[in-house]
Amino acid sequence: MTEDEIIIAQFREGDQDAFSNLMKKYKSLIFSYVRRKVGNDDDADDITQEVFVKVYKALPNWQPRASFQTWLYTIARNRCIDYHRAKARRQFHSLDDDEEYMPVPPATDIYSDPEKMAEENELGRIISEAIKQLSPKQKEVFILHHYQGLQIKEIAAALGMADGSVKVHHHRAMKKLKNILAPLREKGQI
């Protein structure tokens, strides 16, 4: 039994603190993942809360087919997709109402607020711009691996793809980033 499975068993036996422990353990990871997907702190906070509400309700019936962490990322990813869909729908309705048009990022776009990232620092901005140029699947795989630390099998489970596809998307992402960031390397930034 993994550490998470032990905590989940405690929760199922009625230990409320066990759920608090799960939140403490994963809230920052999920928040930073969601923030990369939605591009701002407030929506990331809101979605991260929704993720844990969903986990709370689903946990009594959860079966450890994949790791708890992988399941968590799958829920977070789906919530981010819902968020972008809802945002696109709102945009569509406001167009109907002749309201001011604001461009909506595609469903899997990340860093929808590049100005904020520019404030963080220049390198962060350049890297985030580079990541924006990856295909949606390349981005997903790259973010889950590079930023969230998931391994090949975990990424495959979270995204519902084969291990081989994960390797291909990751390699293509790395190759593309290498080409985009090459001028920076040549300037002797590292």
């Binding site: 608090s20 939140m23 403490k24 809230k27 920052s28 928040f31 930073s32 923030r35 702190d41 906070d45 991260t48 809360q49 844990f52 509400v53 709370y56 990232m117 963080e120 620092n121 390198l123 962060g124 890297i127 590079h146 930023y147 790395m174 190759k175 980033l177 290498k178 960031l181 920076l184 390397r185 930034q189 590292i190």
Partner: peptide
């Protein structure tokens, strides 16, 4: 690719807002 990875690793992770850390469990 190793050089690219080194460059990517220089990117600082944006900090998590304190208000998120403080109120998260209560809000959930």
């Amino acid at each position: 690719l190793r050089g690219t990875l080194q460059l990517l690793q220089l990117e600082p992770e944006p900090s998590i807002p304190q208000r998120f850390m403080d109120n998260f469990e209560t809000n959930v």
